[in-house]
Design a protein around this nucleic acid. Structure first.
Lengths: 339, 339
DNA sequence: TAAAAAATCGAAAACGTTTTCGCCTGTTAA
DNA sequence: TTAACAGGCGAAAACGTTTTCGATTTTTTA
């Protein structure tokens, strides 16, 4: 079965390839009658333009790249969802790559996307990415870039983020408002900015409300996951810190802590209140359900593509584009792990 | 900044484009010395072949498509993870599309992938897909197809599945072995084969072990999600069925049930045992942790791409390929929701 | 020394599309 | 009657690569 081409149609109709091409794209210098004949024949043969040739000619792939640290992750998969939905609406396809939080892999993947000549790239930085040479390389190829969630201030591109500091401040404030007097923090690694910002928000909230900041109440959760949460909670109990509230950097860490307290017969929230962060699906399913801060992944994905799309369109038209930074709203969701 | 091309290198070196191309691909009719000169110059200029041209010439895109019902889903995101990891190893990129369980969308996306001329497609069928004309269309374009998890027996292609019936049988047997005498089933919709098979496995296990099958103990969970699990559990309590075990079709439904029992002060597993299905991350994080059946998503993804790769290679070489069906192992994971 | 064989290279076609530019025919205006 | 113009069409170049096939030069063999 031969693939149907413009040539095929042209020969069948006894006209030139040029005219066929123009007829299908509604050029004004083709008569109405030939347009009809061409379109009919194209439909009859089930003609589908060869994208390889179109790509080569137009220098566009109608494809964008997406690099995220992890695929199996409620937040990131929500972002993916928002992106592919929006992209499909505009006729773009999305190539997904997973950096596994590795700088080396991330670099390789950027290179892959350059080779593939995608029309644009969206990404959330791996925790271990300090160097941004690979992003500069991307931009030197004139490929529009949008960063979301984990961004780098050193790169001049559009960004979609939340205000981690403010969100953490409000999460902590929620604990304070509900009567907590001694609040611990399960913090993330020292590397990514989000982790730092959430810590700072926690600290600021304490200070603003007359509670002393005590660094011995801050526990490190390197991977911000369930196991880390468990470990930190166990350590906290061992330390006999007599804490009445915890603000954990992620819902996963908070869930680990709740599991430990459930096992030990410590009542949440009566004995201790717990605040998570992200509003993963998980947080409404556990017992007690987890109070948390909503981090709008789907919206973030949607907005990311929309901005990328604008920039790609601007580039195509040759008009200058000024990168934008969008800060999305977050809000505290009160459930049963806080009073 | 002009893109570097073969022509560029050829001119710099005063040789022909042909020779440059062949030198870079280590053709035997290029002398060692020119090969070296060419490679050096290519490196110096940071030459990257134009994939658009390569695609057109070779009729390959080195890209595969993936259609799944949902992205934000522990099982499917695990599959995605397995696929993109494996694909990257072989130099393939993955385009992901989400059917949202809609037949219409699925059909459109298949068409999109045909137009894009991907080298192969992997997919898990939408629940509402009965008709398989779109898959036949795909195959008529000679594009290799691999189906996983939710498959159609009507399509002649490679398949990666688990034995849902056997897995459900063993889940139910686990409840029986742990002493349950009256076991309810939260089943899924009547449509997809998985749902039917799990129900049949449940029924068979009862019969094989001398427990009467009672259709009033089967509750429908149309969307097999958390809310459905809650609803079914509440109905079960209202019905006063005096059940001592539940086999739920998914971990989500099981989690909903556990949440209800936790709220009502019904002890799991002392008053009632609960068995989930899939081994989502969730199941180890809730209290009590959920006994379940492991459904190897990552493995499924990995295997899917591997099979697809084999078929793509066979096609390229022009040798015939016989579709295979691979059944992956599942096993019961005992946690704290069963005795 | 001549003939055969091997080594090295390049011209050119092909992949299928898009777009520029010019040509032809027929109509309108002067 | 001629000039200007519009409508409709197609030739050809271009995008950048791969690969076939023939040409040329060099080396080996008889």
């Amino acid at each position: 079965m031969r693939e149907v081409t413009l040539k095929q149609i042209a020969e069948n109709l006894g006209i030139s390839i040029t005219t066929v091409s123009k007829a299908l794209k509604n050029y004004s210098d083709v008569s109405k009658s030939t347009k009809e004949r061409v379109k009919e024949e194209a439909k009859r043969l089930n003609y589908k333009p060869n994208v390889f040739a179109v790509n080569l000619r137009t220098k566009e792939s109608k494809t964008v790249g997406l690099i995220i640290p992890e695929v199996v992750h409620h937040f990131f998969s929500s972002v993916v969802n928002g992106i592919i939905e929006q992209a499909e609406k505009k006729g773009y396809l999305v190539i997904i790559l997973q950096s596994n939080e590795s700088y080396k892999l991330e670099k390789k993947q950027i290179d892959l996307l350059i080779r593939k000549r995608v029309d644009g790239v969206m990404m959330s930085l791996a925790n271990k990415s300090i160097d941004i040479a690979h992003l500069k390389e991307l931009q030197s190829h004139d490929i529009p870039l949008v960063m979301f969630d984990k961004i780098s201030k050193m790169v001049n591109c559009s960004k979609i983020i939340i205000n981690d500091r403010k969100a953490a401040y409000e999460a902590t404030k929620h604990l304070i408002d509900s009567g907590c007097k001694k609040i611990a923090h399960f913090r993330g690694a020292l590397q990514p900015q989000n982790s730092i910002d959430r810590f700072l928000g926690y600290k600021k909230a304490l200070e603003d409300h007359g509670l002393p900041y005590d660094s011995s109440l801050v526990y490190l959760c390197e991977n911000v996951d369930y196991e880390d949460g468990r470990r930190a909670a166990l350590q906290l109990l061992k330390d006999k810190k007599d804490v009445d509230g915890i603000f954990a950097i992620t819902d996963m860490a908070a869930t680990g802590a709740i599991a430990v307290f459930n096992e030990k017969g410590i009542k949440v929230p009566d004995d201790i209140s717990i605040m998570g962060f992200s509003n993963w699906f998980l947080s409404q399913a556990i017992t007690p359900s987890l109070s948390t801060v909503d981090q709008p992944g789907f919206e973030m994905g949607k907005k990311s593509f929309k901005l990328l799309y604008k920039e790609m369109k601007a580039k195509k038209k040759g008009v200058p584009f000024e990168p934008k930074t969008v800060v999305l709203d977050t809000y505290v969701i009160k459930r049963n792990s806080t009073k």
